[in-house]
Design a protein around this nucleic acid. Structure first.
Lengths: 353, 353
DNA sequence: AGTAAAAATGCAAACGTTTTCATTTTTTTA
DNA sequence: TAAAAAAATGAAAACGTTTGCATTTTTACT
């Protein structure tokens, strides 16, 4: 046959139009089309219109991967959270994602379930996608992950928990202070028989800071906390309810400090199940002010962690860091502490004397 | 000066090692290194070891964007949900994401808040990142978005709501049947004065299917539903509580069908606030069986939508579709209906006669 | 041991952009 | 209105992989 040479190499993706097709149709060079997308103000209005028209007619969708290959920017930011499933970070994730969209960035998210080894492989996988920056929840991270990021000069930011002495930029509320606030609130109400329900504090700096602060505040008020008053409880309404039920039946304290609102919800349900009268029989405080904490009956006294605000600030910050090319701005000592105000509702009351 | 020619063009990313550096150090060709990652079994064990060693020593992290440029696969899947913030999709997202990780894929997620126009721009943005496939929640989508995907031959899958006559592959529970189930349950208990709390059904096929089915079931039992018994209520515990409080005070029905568990939680709280005795004074059903629905007091009667299962199946399916190169497999008529069993708890009771 | 078949590997041409530098066009200034 | 300055555009060389094809090495079979 005549034409048994390369027939017409079928392009991978349906021969979708590329930048050169657009350029051709608009009667300009590919470079100009590229500029149309990356720095439009560099073009004349007339040229812009021609290109815009051509792009629409062709149904052109640019290939950011090809762009990223050369330009150092992928327009993608990573977010690594312990869990997505839980109410804990839902608002944060949503806010972070929405704000990124405004910056024309996409979010690559992954969860590691408090497993730091898994976090390493997640970070690696994000790096393979050449993310422009990454936000990690908390301060407990494997050095391997941090090192990979540092070597590649990828901006990192720690979210959620503010720590003045953090080695990386961070945005969040002072979790220790938050726990101190609610605990002090109970003490101010006259409680001394206080139980603590906290999750495993290993590789969870938020929980660790909170628990430590709660205990410190008690100690400062000369309140001794018996060992059996400090209970381990995961972030699960179900388990929290079980543990609290047990606690109430066995040896009810007059107040309970919960590691977060999730646990507190479980405790409130347990109290209902045990026919307790809240807050008379038992005062309960949480940390976080999650969805529903204001509506649950009785309303949960807690401390508000402004998740939305943190998410937005974080998105703005990480984007700013990633576009900045001065090494200093990418590693800068940015540290933002957002307020975590006490929200007093009906789940706490003065200890009847 | 002598060396004022291009000094040594500082490579963009810190001169991070590339595939050729690894190849050189391992004494093989770049092609072989590439194969090491993409089809390891094609290499001899010995070669594999040499490359592995070289890669580790160099701290090499491959560039998937560069790869995707040539290979048609980006290893990235998109997930588009109405909202991340809410308990509604949390479990689905988590499951989808985790399962994707097992396939060595990353998840690009975005939310549009029930705004179909925003969905279009989200899909576009995902397409710019050359996702290998995308999962969309529900069946209501702008044709523009669907068209873009079809033109580019990107596998799509509709999640959450099963519909036998869907035009695209779908995995989910039959939402209409789910609503019918809980409604019938109330009818079986003798209720006839039933109120409905549902969100806006525009561009929300789940809500639409549910509401319609609930009404149909009532009609089938010759129960007439007065207009003032059908209330509009967003997916918000807070608003649901307000609306339910109003409803209870004004003209309490004997039972309420809630558009989903979120709303149901709000209604339960409202009942508590109004000092109602559940389920004697009021029976409440939800749809979804979200976190907490089993622990809330009284336990919520609802229908379980197996979010985790759907998420996993969806991830497996979309990955399979994307790797398949037969056009048929990418568009195949895959339709999976997962069971949505009724879960009877204490929020519903027989109507006292 | 020799040959055929199979398995590994190397070569080099893509992939679709961005960007530097040079060139052309437009605007400003004298 | 010509020259200078500024702005817009074009040409072509990257960017870091993957993959079809050719070549070499290994294995299997007489």
């Amino acid at each position: 046959m005549a034409n048994d040479k390369p027939a017409k190499r079928p392009r991978s993706r349906k021969g979708a139009p590329g930048i050169v097709d657009v350029a051709q149709r608009a009667g300009v060079s590919p470079a100009t089309v590229s500029r149309f997308y990356n720095s439009p103000k560099m073009l004349r209005g007339q040229t812009r219109q021609r290109i815009s028209k051509a792009a629409v007619e062709l149904g052109y969708i640019r290939n950011r991967m090809a762009g990223a290959l050369h330009s150092r920017f992928s327009g993608t930011i990573g977010l690594v959270v312990p869990t997505i499933n839980n109410a804990i970070f839902a608002e944060l994730i949503e806010a972070f994602s929405s704000q990124l969209q405004k910056h024309d960035c996409n979010m690559l998210i992954a969860s590691h379930n408090y497993d730091l080894d898994l976090e390493v492989s997640i970070v690696r996988s994000l790096l393979e996608r050449r993310i422009d920056g990454v936000a990690l929840v908390g301060h407990d991270h494997s050095t391997a992950a941090l090192e990979m990021l540092k070597v590649r000069d990828v901006p990192v930011i720690a979210l959620w928990n503010y720590r003045g002495k953090s080695s990386i930029p961070c945005i969040g509320a002072d979790n220790a202070a938050a726990a101190a606030t609610v605990t002090q609130h109970l003490i101010d109400l006259g409680h001394t028989d206080i139980a603590l329900l906290f999750p495993n504090t290993e590789s969870n700096d938020r929980a660790r800071d909170r628990k430590q602060a709660a205990l410190a505040v008690m100690q400062a008020s000369k309140i001794v906390v018996a060992a059996h008053r400090v209970l381990l409880c995961p972030y699960s309404i179900e388990v929290a309810k079980d543990i609290a039920t047990q606690l109430i039946r066995d040896d009810k304290p007059t107040a309970i400090v919960c590691g977060n609102d999730i646990i507190a919800h479980g405790v409130i349900y347990a109290a209902h199940a045990c026919k307790l009268k809240l807050p008379d029989d038992l005062s309960i405080v949480g940390i976080g002010d999650f969805t529903g904490s204001g509506q649950i009956e009785p309303g949960l006294t807690t401390v508000r962690l402004p998740a939305r605000r943190i998410g937005q600030l974080a998105a703005d910050t990480i984007v700013k860091m990633s576009v900045s090319d001065s090494a200093e701005a990418r590693t800068s000592e940015i540290k933002l502490a957002v307020d975590a105000p006490l929200v007093v509702r009906e789940s706490t009351g003065r200890l009847p004397t």
